[in-house]
Design a protein around this nucleic acid. Structure first.
Lengths: 344, 344
DNA sequence: ATCGGCATCCAAAGCGCTTTGAAAATGATT
DNA sequence: AATCATTTTCAAAGCGCTTTGGATGCCGAT
């Protein structure tokens, strides 16, 4: 069923039917009702492509998912973020189109999206420091919002981010207050902006307590369980092991716990752990009492909100840029406790 | 830059330019080269919507992501599956469009997709037994492939699935051979087809060994870490605890391990665990030596292959239906060992 | 009666592409 | 030189919608 058929069926012109359906005032209310009813009955919905062609809007938003050729890694927060954003999109009549692309071809993917007019705007995921995508998007004039921020970019842009620095600063202080002096950092991939900011918070807290950051107990990698395990094990095996770990993701933290328990130590008593928790739906931090003490911020909620911001920008491209900084909550769980005596 | 501009720039008709770009034979090779070069230089790419309208094909494939209203849960395998499928799509010039929808509105979402002509076909995720989506899709005539199968559907359809039954049958036999008599099952949500099939394999193996399945040590739920933990703990607390667990996902298995170690037991010695492993990129089963003995099947590879099947069906809707059954490999890791003496 | 204003509807153009059917240019054949 | 087949190009229609710029009819006001 298309417009032409529907309107001839109703004995009306396509114009009138189209207007009736799109809520224009110049159509009799009685007529509008008739049209709406017929559309309903015949399950009519305007063809997306035709509508898009006529209006010049795709009513779709793009997400470019860079696939690191080295790591073949999908960001585990991706599903929840998409779920959050997807909610907002449906509510506003937008489709979501994903493009999976090798990270080396990413720029080309954006250019492609732009010239094919497939979407009205894009979300930039996982910004690195000095991320080149941002200036590219500015240049080709595709509306966008960044999930996170990119240090070292001159021109301003819209973003939504967790306050990673303050989160890790507070977490480090929390450990320091418990008497921990030697705190290992198990962080995300070097170059990722969030990892940089978390490290900055960590180092700032240490320095404020007169402790020099020790590269021997700081690691940066793709945040897998195995990476958490290896890092923690290696650090614990040294002569001067950390009494606490600050970890950048739950999955990593699970690996850290494995390493701790494998050595016959108990987490929360012998070794403390604080992790960042993205509040992923399939990886809740325990039940009523959190397993891990964590800096918590829902990535799903971030998706929801970020999508709103992007839609706002699309509707009003020359409007003010929007910056939103979410504070993570520090939730105390069972994985932290006072530093053991002998280590103090 | 659009076709009209490009062709007037070249002093050619739109017809010729279009044909040159789309590889039609009735155009001089010299001309084709000129056109290709100009297109390249001006970064020309045909407008997706216009092309779609003209050809009647969207060159896009839909994934409807049902969001369970109760659980607010995103399937953790989703990211990796999408990554795999996305690879195939890019290679074939397809876009991927996601629709996040509350599970109660799912049927409406498919109807909507269909009448709006947004995509050429869809992937059905997470089939339940007697899944109603399948007949709906047949009825509305939207090409589709199911990731998994749905027991109890009369009309045939294309699918790609892991042999869940045989995987869990083999895993159960493996445990039985090690002397385990009391094996707990920690399975996915009741009603999900894969969970049904895994249980069938488990029960068949038990019965073949003259053991009656005991509902007291069988659980079905959304597969989270916490669910794994709770289930294992409860079972271990009983007077007659299992000596082994068969678990439906790695994330769940991490919870099981937590419960085991919390009781001061050692996994692989005191209690054995076998889990299904979807080979998620961020949750590898240990490094060189697997942590868990596991039935392993890459969900990413499944995505790649399933996308191929769907594209084939779209290109040839009346062609033969395709069924592909992947066997999971049983990988022996450190989480299994002979049943402890006293329990035998 | 005539007019202006308003409510209601319509025909047709246009969005950017593909594709049909025909025309022009070229070359081979007589 | 005329004819035909072949290659190469083109004008225009059509995909399904929105939107512009009228028409049409009806009303009360003049």
């Amino acid at each position: 069923m298309n417009l032409k058929e529907l309107s001839s069926l109703l004995g009306l012109s396509q114009t009138t039917v189209s207007r009736a359906l799109n809520g224009y005032p110049e159509v009799n209310e009685e007529t509008r009702r008739r049209v709406a009813l017929a559309a309903e009955q015949h399950n009519y919905r305007p063809n997306t492509r035709a509508k898009g062609l006529a209006t010049g809007r795709a009513m779709a938003i793009g997400h470019v998912i860079p696939m690191s050729t080295k790591h073949e890694m999908v960001n585990p927060i991706f599903g929840d973020f998409i779920a959050g954003a997807g909610e907002t999109y449906s509510r506003n009549g937008y489709d979501m189109v994903l493009t999976v692309v090798e990270d080396v071809n990413e720029a080309q993917a954006y250019r492609n999206i732009r010239s094919r007019h497939t979407v009205d705007g894009v979300v930039v995921h996982g910004p690195k420091m000095q991320d080149s995508r941002i200036s590219l998007l500015h240049q080709i004039g595709l509306p966008f919002v960044v999930h996170g921020r990119a240090s070292g970019i001159a021109k301003d842009y819209s973003w939504l981010d967790v306050n990673n620095k303050s989160a890790f600063l507070r977490a480090t202080n929390f450990l320091l207050d418990l008497g921990h002096q030697r705190i290992g950092l198990i962080n995300g991939l070097e170059g990722m902006d969030f990892a940089y900011r978390r490290r900055a918070g960590y180092e700032e807290a240490l320095k404020a307590h007169g402790i020099a950051p020790d590269p021997a107990i700081m690691r940066s990698e793709e945040m897998t369980e195995v990476f958490g395990y290896r890092s923690a094990r290696e650090m614990l095996e040294t002569g001067n092991p950390p009494t606490a770990f600050l970890v950048s993701s739950m999955i990593c933290a699970l690996g850290v716990r494995r390493a701790i328990e494998e050595r016959g130590l108990r987490m929360g008593r012998d070794v403390s752990v604080i992790t960042h928790d993205d509040a992923l739906s399939y990886l809740q931090n325990g039940g009523d009492v959190p397993i891990f003490t964590a800096t918590r911020s829902s990535v799903r909620e971030a998706g929801r909100r970020l999508a709103e911001i992007l839609i706002e920008r699309i509707n009003n491209p020359d409007g003010p840029l929007i910056h939103e900084l979410l504070e993570a909550e520090l939730m105390v769980g069972q994985s932290t406790g006072p530093a053991p005596r002998e280590a103090q």
